[in-house]
């Protein structure tokens, strides 16, 4: 029973997190077909999951031109992103979901 309740809680938490991800990230990037390219860029530069997540968090909290991994023409065209107004915990949760959805290692067969 306890196990069932735990699994049920986790499921609802996941649904809630997923809905937060849709609200906080996909609302803007949803129709961006190149959303996964950002993951490629981060992977190419930072390699491990820990380093990628750490770099993403640092950039989203304090976006600068130097820290951006986008190519120069993108920076010129779109500028840098606005600073995230999400609290640290939520932002980390969103980054985790983004990594789980788009990381390259999980696609390897």
């Amino acid at each position: 029973m306890v196990k069932f309740l735990t699994l049920l809680t986790l499921f609802f938490l996941h649904l809630s997190a997923q809905s937060d991800f849709d609200k906080n990230c996909m609302s803007c990037h949803g129709d961006d077909f190149k959303f996964y390219i950002i993951m490629k860029k981060y992977t190419l530069k930072y390699s491990s999951a820990t380093s990628i997540k750490k770099a993403m968090f640092a950039y989203l909290k304090n976006p600068t031109l130097e820290a951006s991994i986008l190519p120069p023409e993108y920076k010129t065209k779109f500028g840098i992103k606005e600073k995230s107004d999400l609290n640290d915990e939520t932002l980390k949760q969103m980054i985790d979901i983004y990594y789980d959805k788009y990381n390259l290692a999980s696609k390897l067969k």
């Binding site: 992977t43 190419l44 530069k45 930072y46």
Partner: peptide, 8 residues
């Protein structure tokens, strides 16, 4: 380096 597919 660069880390293709994250490979270091």
């Amino acid at each position: 380096s660069p880390h293709y597919l994250g490979a270091a």
